[in-house]
Amino acid sequence: MTAELPEVPERPALAELPELPEAIRAVVASVPGVTAVYPAQPAPVAALSDAMSTLGLRSPAEPIVVGAADDGIEIAVTIGVTDDASAAATCRAVYDAVAAHLAGSASGPAARIRVLVASVG
C-alpha cells in the first residue's frame, strides 16, 4: 500500500518577488518603537557595499536581507529602537509584524526571521 503525499504549494523564486524587501522595510518601519531600519549586513560588508555604490559599481544595499533556504525564505532585519521602548518587546513586535506580512504574501511564511537591535535612543 502506497500513501500519497499531500501537494505542497510552490513558492515563487525570490527573483519573482523584487518588491519584498521594500514591503518588509515598510512593515518594520511602521512598528511602534522602531526609529530606523539599518542595512542587515555585517558592518565591514555594509561599508564596502556603500563605497561600491558611491563609485557606481553596484546598487545601494537593501536594508532588509532576504535569502533562500531549503525550507523557505530567511529574513534579516537590523533596527534602531527608541529609548523609551523595550528593545526585546520591539524585536518581538517586528518579528510578529514581518511574520504576519509574509503569511499573507505570495512568498509564504518565512523559515527564519532574525531581528537585531543596532541602536537604542
Rank of each mutant, 00 (worst) to 15 (best):
A89C: 06
P21L: 12
A89M: 11
A40K: 02
V37M: 08
A118D: 15
D96R: 08
M1T: 15
A3R: 13
A97W: 02
A40V: 02
H101Q: 10
T35I: 06
T54R: 14
E62V: 02
Q41Y: 11
S105Q: 07
G108N: 00
P63I: 11
M52H: 15
L102Q: 03
T78Y: 01
L20K: 01
T35Y: 02
T78S: 10
A85D: 12
P109R: 09
V77P: 00
T90N: 06
A61C: 05
A118E: 15
V98H: 01
P6Q: 00
E4Y: 10
E16S: 12
Y38A: 09
G121P: 01
V94H: 00
A97F: 05
A46E: 09
A106R: 15
R114N: 14
D71F: 06
T78K: 03
A15V: 14
A23K: 11
I73T: 00
L17Q: 01
A46K: 04
R25H: 12
R114W: 09
E10L: 10
D70E: 14
L116D: 14
V117Y: 00
P21T: 13
T35G: 07
S86D: 12
A68V: 06
G108S: 03
A106S: 13
A47F: 11
A51K: 05
L57M: 12
H101N: 05
T78C: 07
P60Y: 01
A97G: 05
L102C: 04
T90S: 08
C91N: 04
R112N: 06
E19Y: 15
E74V: 09
H101D: 08
T2L: 14
A43P: 12
L14F: 01
A61R: 10
A88S: 12
E16F: 10
M52C: 15
T2G: 12
L20M: 01
I75D: 01
S119L: 05
I24R: 08
T35E: 06
A100Y: 04
S30M: 03
V34K: 03
P42T: 13
V115K: 02
A118P: 12
Q41H: 12
H101K: 09
P21F: 12
A47I: 11
R114K: 14
